[in-house]
Design a protein around this nucleic acid. Sequence first.
DNA 1: GGCTGCGCTAAGCGCTCGCTCACCTTGGGC
DNA 2: GCCCAAGGTGAGCGAGCGCTTAGCGCAGCC
Lengths: 207, 207
Amino acid sequence: MSTAEETTGGEVEPWEEVTPDAARRLLVAAVEAFAERGYHATTTRDIASRAGMSPAALYIHYKTKEELLHRISRIGHDRALDILRTASRREGTAKERLADAVGSFVRWHAGRRTTARVVQYELDALGPEARAEIVALRRQVDAEVRGIIEDGVASGEFDVRDVQGTTLAVLSLCIDVARWFTVNGPRTPEEVGALYADLVLRMVGAG
Amino acid sequence: MSTAEETTGGEVEPWEEVTPDAARRLLVAAVEAFAERGYHATTTRDIASRAGMSPAALYIHYKTKEELLHRISRIGHDRALDILRTASRREGTAKERLADAVGSFVRWHAGRRTTARVVQYELDALGPEARAEIVALRRQVDAEVRGIIEDGVASGEFDVRDVQGTTLAVLSLCIDVARWFTVNGPRTPEEVGALYADLVLRMVGAG
DNA sequence: GGCTGCGCTAAGCGCTCGCTCACCTTGGGC
DNA sequence: GCCCAAGGTGAGCGAGCGCTTAGCGCAGCC
């Protein structure tokens, strides 16, 4: 269990909060389809058939295709935020906390790449209200990383001229992992996490 | 003119190679639409009406909607590669060349964000042969950046353990600019380019 | 053992998609 | 002044989309 936790960057088997079982199967199918082809290129028939059900079954558990994306995005952002908060609020120096935050955040983007891809790149497919809700979560993600960097600057551990710009760059680096990472590649999520943590420490002058 | 060149990261008014005029207007309209809503969410009617033409006019100049994306992606990648090659082959130390490459590459992604967005994020919408052609160009992009980093390591200017991994991270950082940058934001393309060049030099141990 | 309600399916509605086709307009050559 | 190619339009085709509806099978209760 704890091994699996480490390899995925935090969670054993996700979506356990989604019930009943048929709703979860549909949601998992939607994550895979959205990650592979994108939200707009995915049909409700494709999602249903991946879940082993008829097209109409989707509408028993979800009002629209967009509600599926919203649920996925919401749960994914909650999880991402949880990962960063855990790293941010542990004991230790700012350097240790930043390395932990970047390492686990990157492991999540690499290890749970299908989810991360949907979460990070399908935001624009949401309607205005749903998008506003998610954007608020993203601001909290930004605040969490910025907080660690500010702590490091205050304690003298870090040497950063533009805190907000550096925060943006750190998150940017982590998020883009979801775009290029593939399980067929030469690196494991752990290796990428360790490399990126090291690079980020250099970026803040603590390498 | 040279001012404009600097603000956009390299080019004054692009797409000049696309003729005749109607074909260029359609292509520019497609870039805007694809960048705003994504390839699959864009309709041929939307593209044509942005160009001030009827839906059927598109098919006089392009065989399919996908051919439009292919042309955009090809020209955009050529331009991106050109920017990196120019920086890579200028005279100067590896440190200067890497700062120049990252600075101009980032300025292009920020200043010509609509194009960059399509180029970097709509690759999967291409068919197999077209995608293969673009993937080859991307390998050349990677090689150009890796070359500079290898030069810096060889000359002792850089301290990099994992050259390929660091190359990936540098490109990743630059590319993700196209995802988050907005003209309404607080930073100009020049400012982001300068900040990112500085951060990248730190990543390679030359900050 | 019959009834009820829930989860699901088969069929299909209305719509919009990418794309086509028959026809129209226009500017240059003779 | 007439012709024709090039470049455009209006109308619409077949297909596939998101989503709905009528009804089926079956587990649980009396």
